[in-house]
Simulated assay, not measured.
Amino acid sequence: MRLTRRPLPRWTLPAALLAALGLAAWINEPIPGVTGREARAVAALPPAPAFRSGQRVLLLSPHPDDETLCCAGLLSQARAAGAQVYVTWITAGDGFEFDAALTERTLHPRGRALRELGERRVQEARAAARVLGVPADRQVFLGYPDGGLRALNGRNYARPYTSPRTGSSAVYLREAQTPGAPFTGQALDADLERVLRRVRPDMILIPAHEDFHPDHHTLTLIAQRLASRLGLTDRLRYWVVHGGLEWPLPKGLHTALPLVPPPLARALPWQRVPLSAGDQQVKAQAVNAYRTQTEVLGRFMRAFVRRNELLSPADQPGR
């Protein structure tokens, strides 16, 4: 069936844009943060081990931009040390309706509008990866449904899931590893296992359980299950992007400030990844590659460009 786009009433789009600007202003409202005590606590964290030449580092990113927010400086350092860096994106980030409303100029984006957003975000991810020096042949897009990973890991493990946002029940991305793969947990497991067997990573960077976003902590479970099956559990390392209300603070670009542990995951055994001015510049450039996202969440995203990043060798305190 061919999808057609209904013309909107003349008042609709200005009203939508006003609402968007109001929400963006609320999201971007600067709030003081990072006390001297917190800064000293970050400085006291042990440094993460240095990368080595030839090391194979794989980052599993739930959505385009997560790899940059959590780990752009880390990935840049790994590449500079001679490590081989790979990034695999699980979804295309096609579930952000507010973003699509702005970019596609439609009040109620669905179907084609969100699939077009997914294709656009894939190209932004490629642009960010170029900034980080990740070669195209080490970039993989799987194309599973944004907002649907929990269903794929549960009731839709064997039965195809239909995304209420895109209307798709199979991978539609032209650049996906397996175009046409059904939206099932079985297909996602098979795709991810194919990546792990091909890359044979020495380090696998995934979200921690404590990351608030359902796609993030569901990916944790999936990756841990596959890593256990393949004998790779000791190679898992953890990061957080959605770490609690308003984190990180303050919003906006503050390169002189440290990134403090997220409230939802303070108890994890965090390691500090110090970032040089050059690392910060690379990270800021990669953030800016996500134009669809920075239009709405720019101050949130740029708040991750700090003096350090955070990495945990375990996803539970005391492990």
Score class of each variant (00 low, 15 high):
L219I: 12
L232V: 13
D191Q: 15
S169T: 03
L117H: 01
I31K: 13
G243T: 05
A113D: 09
P32L: 12
L149G: 06
V240C: 14
V260F: 06
I204T: 15
Y161M: 07
P49N: 04
A80E: 14
F304D: 02
P261Y: 05
N156I: 03
W89G: 06
S76L: 02
A284E: 13
L142A: 07
I31P: 01
G93V: 06
T255A: 14
Q281K: 07
Q281F: 04
Q123T: 12
P32G: 13
A208L: 11
S61W: 05
Q177S: 09
D189Y: 10
D189Q: 06
L236G: 08
V260T: 15
A16M: 14
G231M: 03
A181H: 11
G22P: 00
R112W: 02
G180K: 10
Q139R: 14
P32F: 10
L45W: 09
A223Y: 00
L152G: 06
T106I: 14
P258A: 00
L74F: 07
E119F: 00
A92W: 02
P313A: 08
A187I: 10
P179Q: 01
A284V: 14
N308I: 10
H216K: 04
T233K: 02
A19Q: 08
F300Y: 15
Y161D: 07
L245E: 11
Q123F: 03
E67D: 13
G167I: 08
R112H: 04
G82L: 09
P7M: 07
D315N: 14
S53W: 01
Q280R: 15
L18K: 07
R115F: 01
G252S: 06
E116M: 03
L142R: 06
E246P: 00
R6K: 10
T12Q: 08
E29I: 05
Q271C: 05
L59H: 09
R291E: 09
A277I: 08
A303E: 08
R150L: 07
L114Y: 00
A277T: 12
P248H: 14
L102Q: 10
A25S: 15
C70N: 05
P49V: 04
P263R: 13
T184I: 11
R302K: 11
R120S: 14
S163I: 10
R150A: 12
A208M: 09
P214K: 03
A24T: 15
W89K: 00
A101H: 02
R291M: 04
T220E: 00
E295I: 12
E246N: 12
A100E: 04
R306L: 05
E67L: 01
A48M: 08
A129R: 02
V34N: 11
G147S: 02
V57A: 09
H63T: 03
S163R: 01
R56D: 10
R165E: 00
R150N: 04
V195T: 10
A43Q: 15
R307S: 12
R200A: 14
A151D: 09
P201R: 06
L232I: 12
R79N: 04
R40V: 12
T184V: 11
